[in-house]
C-alpha cells in the first residue's frame, strides 16, 4: 500500500500522517514506522483510534499490531500474539500484570485529520 502523503511534514506540525482512516479495518491493527519508532495503530469497532508501542515488552519482538483486539470489561484491549498478555489500549497497562511497569506499552497520541490518521511526536 503506497498512500500519497499529505503536504504537511512531521517537522512542521509534530504530527505524522501514516495512512488513510479507511485503510484501517476495524479491530485489526497495523504497524507504522515513525522516525525510527515502530507504532501499532488500531481502529476500534466504535470508530476510535489508538496507538501504542509495536514492541511486545515480554518477548521483545515487534508484533503488537498483529494481536487480537477485543474488550475486557469496558477496556478496549489488544492481546500480544506471542505470549497472549492483554493490554489496555487506552493506557498501555498490561491487564494481566497491572503493577509491573516493565510490562507496559507506551501510548502515542493519535488523531484523525482530513481522513488521515496521524501519530503525534509527543506522548
Amino acid at each position: 500500500m503506497t498512500a500519497t502523503l499529505p503536504p504537511e511534514t512531521t517537522a512542521q506540525t509534530g504530527w505524522t500522517a501514516v495512512c488513510r482512516y479507511t485503510d484501517l479495518q476495524p479491530e485489526r491493527g497495523v504497524a507504522a514506522l515513525v522516525g525510527d519508532q515502530q507504532i501499532a495503530v488500531f481502529r476500534l469497532f466504535d470508530g476510535s483510534l489508538h496507538a501504542v508501542g509495536h514492541r511486545d515488552p515480554v518477548s521483545g519482538a515487534h508484533v503488537i499490531a498483529r494481536g487480537l483486539v477485543g474488550t475486557r470489561g469496558d477496556a478496549p484491549t489488544v492481546a500480544s500474539p506471542m505470549y497472549k498478555q492483554v493490554f489496555d489500549l487506552r493506557t498501555g497497562v498490561c491487564l494481566d500484570a497491572p503493577d509491573d511497569s516493565a510490562v507496559r506499552l507506551p501510548v502515542h497520541p493519535v488523531r484523525l485529520r482530513d481522513g488521515w490518521v496521524e501519530i503525534g511526536s509527543g506522548g
Binding site: 500500500m1 498512500a3 504497524a31 525510527d36 515502530q38 515487534h62
Partner: peptide
Amino acid sequence: LRRFASFVNAPDSPDPS
C-alpha cells in the same frame, strides 16, 4: 495482499530490529 505490509506507511521495509 494488503494485509502483508510490514508498515502501513512503508509496506516493504523490513522490521529494523
